[in-house]
């Protein structure tokens, strides 16, 4: 019962994801295109879409793992006593990194790293790391000072204070940050199709180039479906953790 209540906020995103996934089915997408007055041409099979979705997910998840490790780790370092002067630098760097759109990072990494996954992964990390770092810093700073003082008064070491008091209190806000990071990761992985990474962005880009509406619509619906399902999963995790 309790679990069910914790999962309820994820329901909207889950339904949106499932509806969009249904839209990406070849029969439905072809019907929509026909309804729009176009002659439906070759649709992608569900198997091919699923394979692309899996690669998309692997790429986004790898990126999220890197971003989470580096962002949360650096966020913990930046909030330790003695790192006070780094805070301003973190905010400035975050703003500067945000000024470089993911497409541009993918494009710039292309000549150096070649076609495919690597430039996409670099863009994922580059674009995701600063918001995650800033979110982690914000989450840890929001831990009430009394909680920290109480821990010190109980004789906990700095490390124990971090792992037993600060991190558990900061976890909901950190998960919220990771939710944004995952949405970014799914979006950047779609952009990676421009650099030749095989993701759900691939049929969209190819469809735009050769004016083939059905795969374009299928790819768009499937990408959005994956994004909503990932979002639902993160909301569910956050709900269970907050319970």
């Amino acid at each position: 019962m309790n679990v069910r209540r914790a999962l309820r906020p994820a329901l909207g995103a889950l339904v949106a994801g499932l509806v969009l996934a249904a839209l990406s089915h070849p029969a439905i997408a072809s019907a929509i295109v026909a309804g729009l007055g176009d002659v439906p041409r070759r649709a992608l099979t569900p198997g091919y879409l699923a394979a692309l979705a899996l690669q998309h997910l692997i790429l986004a998840a790898t990126g999220l793992a890197l971003v989470a490790t580096a962002g949360i780790g650096l966020g913990i370092l930046a909030t330790r006593p003695g790192a006070g002067s780094l805070r301003g630098g973190v905010d400035t760097l975050a703003a500067a990194a945000q000024a470089v759109p993911p497409v541009v990072v993918v494009a710039l990494a292309l000549p150096v790293l070649g076609f495919g996954g690597p430039p996409t992964l670099l863009a994922l990390v580059f674009y995701g790391i600063m918001p995650t770092l800033r979110g982690t810093v914000g989450a840890l700073e929001a831990v009430p000072a009394e909680a920290r003082e109480a821990a010190t008064a109980l004789g906990l070491t700095a490390r124990q204070t971090l792992t037993r008091i600060e991190l558990p209190l900061a976890v909901p806000a950190i998960v919220e940050t990771l939710r944004t990071a995952l949405a970014l990761a799914v979006a950047v992985a779609a952009v990676g199709a421009l650099a030749g990474a095989a993701t759900l962005g691939t049929p969209i880009v190819a469809g735009l180039q050769n004016q083939n509406t059905v795969p374009m619509l299928q790819g768009a619906a499937a990408t959005a479906a994956l994004a909503f399902l990932c979002d639902a999963a993160m909301v569910a995790v956050a709900g269970v953790l907050r319970r």
């Binding site: 295109v33 729009l36 979006a187 779609a190 962005g201 509406t213 374009m216 790819g219 768009a220």
Partner: peptide, 18 residues
């Protein structure tokens, strides 16, 4: 915000042509 930009642009082009 959850919908990736590439997907939204693709869907908009499909809808616009319709």
């Amino acid at each position: 915000q959850v919908v990736p930009a590439v997907a939204l642009l693709g869907a908009l082009v499909a809808l616009a042509s319709g």
